[in-house]
Structures are given as structure tokens and as C-alpha cells.
Design a protein around this nucleic acid. Structure first.
Lengths: 288, 288
DNA sequence: TCGTGTTTCGCGCACAGG
DNA sequence: CCTGTGCGCGAAACACGA
């Protein structure tokens, strides 16, 4: 709302040399500027006031502007000036100012209503700025959604894993968390060392390898699928609702509960990582 | 330079109803608008032209603008119109337009020179826009530098590793590439399985762990340090120069070649990762 | 400091159209 | 009779040579 871009009414005249030539003017008719006042009349002066007036009003009419302007100007020098037929003049000037303003498309005159339009280019830039901001926010939102989706998968995966572990009789089948899986080309020579205290494990490969964390593996194992009933037990209602409304549940639901077509459409992340991935990590840093 | 924001000279008048009232005007003196021409004269019309003129000139004078405008207008309707004392009028109007323009600070009049200023708010926004862009570029540059620094460290590390391997007699001491080191708490139970064909390795931990790639390990081993002579052999001269000029070599140079104070200042990345790192990977995704 | 030629532009008359 | 606007008369403001 508040726009601190108001043009000050008293700008310095372009007179570098303060030559005060006291002519013998003061004609009977006009020009009553008494003391060393530079500009107090004229199109220049009125334009600024009209500009600011319309800007603050947003929408107004000629008469509103003119009346207030007359008021303001007359009160500003009520002391002893004349000011009799000044009003006529001011009103005439307001027309001039409004005309130029509307020519520049800063304002729009429609029948009797004058509406503020703002500066032409400023508008263009505002638009661009806003578009940029929208795009920016959109990207952020998309990121958040992505993360949420991942967390959802993880939640389901862990849930299923816990379930699986507690149902398998022999502890050998238990899969603990956390863990990693490292894989490489079958012809690669791998040497696996571990320090005595089991603090460090060292793996050496003769060829590039790839590492997958537990989440990825669990997902490949199909542990990332469940049904709606179970989801209800593990998610707060509001979050569940949000996920449902945003098609995020597709990723963690068994396909049989969806219409056939969805099978084909269900997004499937490219998790078939190939060995190049690892080297890419080393050399593809010079991206955008 | 080119700014496609020119105000079109013939804007539609705000007349929703095309009432063509053919009065019996055409007074002897003025108002020579013949056929159904909307606006071809008047402050409104001239303002636009003046505006565009000054904008394209950048810097000009009253006479330049007025002359060209007179030229343009008179040629635009050379057909059979009068146009004798029109010039006087036009010149008078140019003053009006210029005055309003200068009142709005769109132009600046200095003595005899009129200079384009652009739209007030547009300027403010331009500034902001440019600042944003600078910050953006700055960030990108910083990123690139960071990556370059990392690649430099890697280059040196690999170089040193190759050197070390070729100098150690027994192959047992060789360290092949690539490799990873996984470490965890000493009380953690680790189970390490490997498939028959050595394609997959599975590590299970009872507690959080942390993975370091070869670069990190090599760095911890001090393999990331060398001297200037060797750097000259492994880097193209221009890149070497750039790195030197940007203090990037500090990270890969043995400290003894620098003044004592530098020991304290030499940046040391916080590579003493603790177990929390891994979990952070799981749960700290909801960042900014 | 004037006198005089130019440059600016204040001001308001006069007229178009309702 | 109002609302709007074209238009141009001079009067300031300025420039400059003497």
C-alpha cells in the first residue's frame, strides 16, 4: 500500500547561478510571486501535485483533484496574496497535467473517472518480478513435496521392515537398520577389510561401484508399498489427507487398489543405477 | 539498449460509443481537424511524441525535439491542410509536455540539455534487480570455486596415491581406486555379507554409521598436500595461475612453505564427522 | 548595468460538445 | 450552461554584447 515514491513538490530549479535580477515587474494582472520564491505556480508545480494526488486516491475525478488542489494551493499562501481568479487558472492547469499524465498512460480517464495506472515500465517489471517470485516459490514447493514423498516412502518402508522382522522366526532373517549395500561390476575385484574393533570397514574395488542406502534398497525390495488402512495408523490425519489430495499415496500403495490405467502412469524413479553413477559423482561437479 | 516500451501515438480515445456528431463547426480560426480524425493535435498527442523522442535521444535539447516534432507532424498531414502557423503552436506545446515530464522526474532539464531519466520506480526496481543478479552470480561463482577447490584436492590426492603405490614394494600396500570407508561406533555390531560373485556387498549395523569416499579418506591421510613444483607438472599453467591468485593452493600445499601465521589461518574443513551425520541424512531434509 | 534578442511558459480566451 | 481543450498573446527569465 504505502509507496514512498512521492515526488517532492519543491524541487530546485535548474539555476546554478543565483543571479537575482530585480526587474521592475509586478504587472497589474498576474505574476504575484513576491519574495524570492522560485516556483509556486505553473504547470510544472501543479503537475507534481496532481500526480501525487491521483496516485494516493487511486481512483478519483477531475473535480476532486482540482478542488483539493485549489484548496491546498490557496491555503499555502493565504497570507496576503491575492488569489481571486487564481482558482480559474489552477483548474485550467489541472487539465493540462491530467492530459499529459493520461498520454503517458500513467493514469486513465474513463468518462469522468480518473484511475491511477502507475509507471508503464514499472508495471512491466512488477509483472516480471512477480512471475519470478511465483516460479521461485513453485520450485520450493516442489522440493518440499519431493522430500515429503521420500519421507513417506521411508516411513512406510520402515514400518514394513519392522513388521517383517517381528514376524520372521529366526533372527538370521532380521534386517537391522541402518545398513548400506555396495555393488560393483561382477568382474571387479573387491577386498573387504575391517579393523579389529569393528569401528572401520574398508572396501577396495578395482572398478567403479555404487552405493545404495537402506531406503533405496528397501524400496527395491518392495517394502515401500502398503494399503490405505495401514497408512491411517501411521500418519496423522491431516498429513494423510494432504498426501492423498496430492497423489503422493500412489507411490506407497499396492497397485491393486487403483484403476488399471494407473498402473502405466504410476511414476517409477530410475533406480537402476549403473556403475557410471559413481564416477559421475567425481567428475560431473562442474554442472550449471 | 533497445527498449520496447514505446508509447503508441494513436491510442484509442475513451469513447465507448462511436457517436459521430457532424456539427457545423470549422470556425475560421482554429480547429482544422477535418475528417473523422480523433486526436491529431493537442497536448495529449504531442506529449507522447515528446516522451518517445527524448527517450530515444537520451540527451537532447528543446530545439532538437521541437524541430523534429514539427517536421514529423507537418509531414504527417502535408496533403492539403493548412499548417502555416502550426509550428508556433507545436513549439508551445512541446514546452508544456517537457514541463510535465520534468515535473515527474522522467526527464531532467539542465540549462539547455534535456536528459532522459526513465520512470522513477522503474529505476528503483532496476537497482534491486541488478543487486539480486549480482548476488546470484556471486553465489554461482562461489560454488564453482568450491568445486574447483575440491577437484584440485582430488587431483593432488590421486597424484600422490599413484606415486605412493608405485613406490611401495609389496602389492599389499597398494591402495586401489575407487574405495569407500565405512565407520561406526565401536560398540556397534556389524555384519558384512557378500554375494558369491562379488557383485554385492551388504553391511548391517546396529547403530548409525558414516561413509567416507576415497577423496575424504585420502585427504585425512594427508595425501592432499604437495609442493608448488609438482603442481606445475600436473596443472595447466593458466589454471595453476588462477588457483594461486585465488588462494586455492593453500589447501594443497605443505605448510612449511608458508609463513608461520598461515598455519593458524589455513582453513580446515570439519571432517571429524560424527555418527549423527548419517541420521541427519534421513531426517534433516525439511531444511529451507 | 543596460538594451535587445531569445527562450520559456503563465494564463485565460474562445470554442467544441454535450 | 457546464466540461474540456486548443491555442497563442505577451510577460518573465535569460543570454550577451557594448
Amino acid at each position: 500500500m504505502a509507496d514512498y515514491d512521492e515526488l517532492s513538490e519543491n524541487r530546485k530549479r535548474s539555476s546554478p547561478s543565483p543571479v537575482s535580477s530585480s526587474k521592475s515587474s509586478k504587472r497589474a494582472k498576474t505574476k504575484a510571486s513576491p519574495a524570492g520564491e522560485k516556483s509556486n505556480r505553473g504547470l510544472r508545480h501543479f503537475s507534481i501535485i496532481v500526480y501525487n494526488k491521483v496516485k494516493e486516491k487511486g481512483t478519483t475525478t477531475y473535480n476532486e483533484v482540482a478542488d483539493e488542489l485549489v484548496q491546498k494551493v490557496l491555503s499555502e499562501r493565504s497570507d496576503e496574496m491575492k488569489g481571486k481568479d487564481d482558482e480559474k487558472n489552477i483548474r485550467r492547469r489541472v487539465y493540462d497535467a491530467l492530459n499529459v499524465l493520461s498520454a503517458l498512460d500513467i493514469i486513465t480517464k474513463e468518462k469522468k473517472d480518473i484511475t491511477w495506472n502507475g509507471l508503464p515500465t514499472a508495471k512491466k517489471q512488477d509483472l516480471q518480478q512477480m512471475k519470478d517470485e511465483i516460479a521461485q516459490r513453485e520450485r520450493q514447493l516442489q522440493e518440499k513435496k519431493q522430500v515429503l514423498k521420500e519421507l513417506l516412502v521411508q516411513k512406510v518402508s520402515f514400518h514394513n521392515l519392522v513388521n517383517r522382522n517381528s514376524h520372521s522366526a529366526m533372527p538370521r532373517d532380521h534386517i537391522p537398520l541402518p545398513f548400506v549395500v555396495v555393488n560393483t561390476h561382477s568382474s571387479s575385484v573387491v577386498q573387504c577389510d575391517m579393523s579389529r574393533d569393528k569401528t572401520d570397514v574398508m572396501l577396495e574395488f578395482s572398478m567403479p561401484f555404487e552405493i545404495n542406502d537402506d531406503n533405496t534398497i528397501l524400496k527395491k525390495m518392495g517394502m515401500d508399498k502398503t494399503n490405505y488402512r495401514d497408512l491411517q495408523t501411521m500418519l496423522p490425519p491431516d498429513i494423510l489427507e494432504y498426501c492423498r489430495d496430492n497423489q503422493m499415496l500412489d507411490h506407497v500403495m499396492h497397485p491393486q487398489h487403483m484403476p488399471p490405467m494407473q498402473h502405466m502412469h504410476r511414476p517409477m524413479e530410475p533406480y537402476h543405477g549403473h556403475p557410471a553413477h559413481h564416477r559421475a559423482h567425481y567428475y560431473d561437479h562442474m554442472g550449471p
